[in-house]
């Protein structure tokens, strides 16, 4: 079953109503946005459940088991509970900043999906700056962290916010540079072009030796740090900082941070799958199934990291980024450029 056909039909149906073209486009885009939002909300809920299951099975437990089949209704119940909770705003917070921080985190997390192709043709808008757009939008996550840290008027929140901002800024550099290596080879910033340049499995950038795997590993490490997950989960190191930047948040606002976090995890995995594993390309199954399979495989890797590793120390974290990851990814970029230029492996 291909979904794009349905969309085409719906679009034509909308056109046949005789509305002006501008309005048709606005309605189409708005409904696409709403749909993506719905899909992502479901995915985020699923990821919360999945994280619990993965962690439980890594730790030889079962995790939630009582609500529905293997506890699948658990996160739905949790989400509903979280939304019903009293929305507490402590009296000493910087109100506007405190209010807008989760909103920005939430919006930034979802805005990225404008240029992520869920399948063949399943993309809201194939911007020609695709990947650059994603990287630009994710910087708003940092702003939201800083706002949450500052706005909470709490030392733990402030320290957590600053830590995560410092961390995200430093890991953004190797992440972008490792993405650049792929861009050099694809010759385009558009996500669709990048996917289409990996039509065959041996063309996946992950298998372009030697630069592909290096770029992927630097990417996935930097991405783990970007999403503030173990072993880079310093912003929420509970032994030092209680809970990090979101310590003062509760109810709905906390839910927004929480959801944004899981959506971000899905985002970095989706980018990883798109850039290195051929995105939606794959035989037999519909394209969006392939995309989801690959993305969830990468999400699993991130969860695997989280439930296996201890946490780094702040200085070690920075050292790792600046003294190891960055030089490696730069060397890799030069290598990729040279390979492209010399025409080697240029299948």
């Amino acid at each position: 079953m291909e979904i794009t056909g349905i969309f085409k039909y719906l679009y034509e149906l909308l056109q046949s109503t005789g509305l002006p073209q501008v309005l048709v486009d606005i309605i189409a885009l708005a409904s696409a946005a709403v749909m993506i939002f719905g899909v992502l909300a479901v995915i985020a809920l699923f990821l919360v459940w999945w994280e619990r299951k993965v962690s439980a099975h890594i730790q030889q437990r079962f995790g939630p088991m009582r609500t529905g089949w293997h506890g699948w209704r658990q996160t739905i119940a949790d989400a509903v509970k979280l939304l019903q909770k009293e929305d507490i705003t402590p009296s000493t917070v910087d109100r506007p900043v405190f209010f807008w921080a989760p909103v920005i985190a939430f919006v930034a997390a979802f805005m990225v999906y404008v240029t992520i192709p869920f399948g063949d043709g399943l993309i809201v808008s194939d911007l020609n700056i695709g990947i650059l757009f994603i990287i630009a939008i994710t910087t708003f996550t940092i702003i939201s962290l800083l706002m949450a840290g500052w706005g909470s008027n709490n030392k733990y929140a402030l320290l957590g916010g600053m830590r995560s901002a410092a961390q995200v800024v430093s890991y953004e550099v190797p992440m972008v540079v490792s993405v650049l290596a792929v861009i050099v080879f694809a010759g385009s910033l558009s996500m669709v072009d990048i996917v289409q340049s990996q039509a065959k499995i041996y063309k996946w950038y992950f298998f372009r030796l030697p630069f592909g795997p290096i770029a992927f590993f630097t990417y996935i490490i930097a991405a783990t740090a970007e999403t503030n997950r173990t072993p880079f989960d310093l912003p929420e190191a509970e032994q030092e900082l209680v809970a990090g930047f979101n310590v003062e948040y509760s109810g709905m606002k906390f839910a927004m941070f929480f959801l944004a976090e899981f959506v971000n995890m899905f985002t970095v995995s989706a980018i990883g799958a798109t850039l290195f594993f051929g995105g939606w390309q794959g035989p037999l199954l519909p394209s969006w199934v392939w995309f989801l399979v690959k993305t969830f495989a990468l999400v699993f890797v991130l969860m695997w990291f989280r439930w296996t590793y201890p946490r780094l120390r702040v200085d070690q974290l920075m050292e790792f980024s600046w003294k190891f990851l960055l030089p490696v990814s730069f060397a890799n970029l030069i290598l990729a450029g040279w390979m492209k230029y010399s025409g080697w492996f240029n299948w």
């Binding site: 700056i129 650059l132 757009f133 990287i135 630009a136 939008i137 910087t139 708003f140 940092i142 702003i143 800024v169 953004e172």
Partner: peptide, 11 residues
């Protein structure tokens, strides 16, 4: 635009 956001907002 993307570079503007990336550099001015992001950095």
């Amino acid at each position: 635009a993307a570079v503007q956001v990336l550099i001015y907002v992001g950095a």
